[in-house]
Structures are given as C-alpha cells and as structure tokens.
Amino acid sequence: MTGLNDLTRICPPPDQATAIHWDRIEADLGMPLPQDYKELADRYGPGTFNDYLRFFHPHGVTHYVTLTGPAPGRIRAQLRKDYDQDTHPVPYEPDTLFACGATDNGEYLFWITDPATEPDLWHIAVNEARGPGWFTYEGNATAFLVAVLGRQPQVPLFPPSFAEGPAYFTPSRPPLWKPPPFSDAQPVDTGAVRSWARANGYDVPSRGRIPPEIREAWERTTSGE
C-alpha cells in the first residue's frame, strides 16, 4: 500500500471508494491484474489526474475508457499492424502490450505484460500521440503516477504544464450523450487470446497463427458457454 499512500498524500482521492468484483474483471479479460492497479481503481474510481491523464477503469463511463471494453483490443491490433508493416517503431512485442490508460492529448499508456503470469512485475510504457516516440517507466501504475505528478521523472511526451501546481483528481461523470458503439466487426485481440491461453496452461506460440483448438476454447470461455 506504500505507493497508494504516497499517491493519496499528494493527490487526495474521492471521499467514497469504488466496489469492484475483481474476480469477474480478470475472468472477462482472461488475465490477472496488478495488485497496485486494483487498489488504485478501488480507491479513486474512474476519472482523470490533473484533467489530463486517466487509467482505464472497470466502471468507465464510456467504452472508450473502460478496461474491459473494446478499446484495449483495438489499440493492440493497430500496434500489431504498425509492428508487422514497420509503419511506426514499436519497441515491444505488441502481444505484450495492454492499453491501460490514455491522456487528453492522445497518448496511450500500456502495461508491459512480461512475465504474463506475474502482473505485479509489469512496467508502464507511454506511446506518443502523433509521433513515433515511446517512454518507459520501470515501475507499476501507482508509482508512475506518484513520479509524474511530482515531475520525477518528467515524461517528455507530456506537456510541461501537466504537473504544475498541486495534483488533483476529477471523478468521471456519465456523459450527456451516448457515443456510437464500436463496430462488432473488429479484429480479434490475439494478445488477449495468447495471455488467456498461457494463464490456462496452453502452449501457444508468441507470434504467428494461434492453433484453432486454442482459439475455439477461448471463444467458448469468453462467450460464457
């Protein structure tokens, strides 16, 4: 809890904590989640830090900011395309990157999910919004927030004004309009399938075609059959 204690000291959380059924969330995702992130999401709920940076939350108010929504899969699919076609440099194997947050400027935050079965060892990577830059923080999500809100380090992809003045958190409010739903015809997030397969004892290659029996088992699990 040390990281969370440090964060609440410099950035007061809402008065009321959020109740989250983490077993269901991890089952939906097909992978475990870092303990620090669970504590962070429980204590702060959905919202933004300094009206700029947010971590996706299981109770996000739209699909675009929900941890279990389609956004992480869509983002990883685009990274896979960039990686395979060498469109933009991606410093990590895309299947190890899980989008866990974003900024109002369009940067994405990722967990580097390596090793896949030890989420408390995952680090944070940030992808530049409209460019090829990447920034890696060798610590967890809560430690990252403590560091960047205190400008230690200062993330070069973020505007200098991001951490000026006292840190504050703004809880999300339901939107007055409903955003259009994601298309159902989105590519399957192969990284999620591989993570689920490894967590359930399947021998799955890190790249290339996923064996059909693994894909079918994953589809049966995620569809609730």
Rank of each mutant, 00 (worst) to 15 (best):
2 T>R: 04
4 L>K: 06
7 L>E: 09
7 L>T: 04
10 I>C: 10
10 I>E: 11
14 P>W: 06
15 D>Y: 04
15 D>G: 04
20 I>D: 12
30 G>K: 03
31 M>W: 03
35 Q>L: 15
39 E>P: 05
40 L>S: 07
40 L>M: 08
41 A>P: 03
41 A>L: 08
42 D>F: 11
47 G>I: 07
48 T>F: 06
51 D>W: 01
51 D>A: 02
53 L>D: 05
57 H>F: 13
60 G>C: 07
66 T>Y: 04
69 G>E: 15
70 P>K: 15
71 A>C: 06
76 R>E: 01
85 Q>N: 09
88 H>G: 04
88 H>V: 06
89 P>K: 13
90 V>I: 09
92 Y>H: 10
94 P>I: 00
96 T>L: 02
104 D>V: 15
106 G>W: 04
107 E>W: 14
108 Y>I: 00
113 T>M: 08
113 T>S: 08
116 A>F: 14
117 T>G: 07
119 P>L: 08
121 L>G: 14
126 V>D: 00
127 N>F: 04
133 G>K: 06
136 T>L: 07
140 N>R: 08
141 A>C: 12
143 A>T: 13
144 F>P: 00
150 G>E: 09
151 R>D: 04
153 P>T: 14
154 Q>E: 13
155 V>T: 05
157 L>S: 04
157 L>H: 09
158 F>L: 08
162 F>Y: 13
162 F>R: 07
165 G>K: 09
169 F>D: 00
169 F>G: 02
178 K>M: 12
179 P>K: 02
180 P>C: 01
182 F>L: 13
186 Q>M: 10
187 P>S: 10
192 A>G: 08
193 V>T: 01
194 R>S: 02
195 S>Y: 00
198 R>Y: 05
199 A>T: 14
202 Y>F: 14
203 D>W: 13
210 I>N: 13
211 P>D: 08
213 E>N: 12
215 R>D: 13
216 E>S: 09
217 A>S: 03
218 W>H: 13
220 R>I: 04
222 T>V: 10
223 S>H: 07
225 E>C: 15
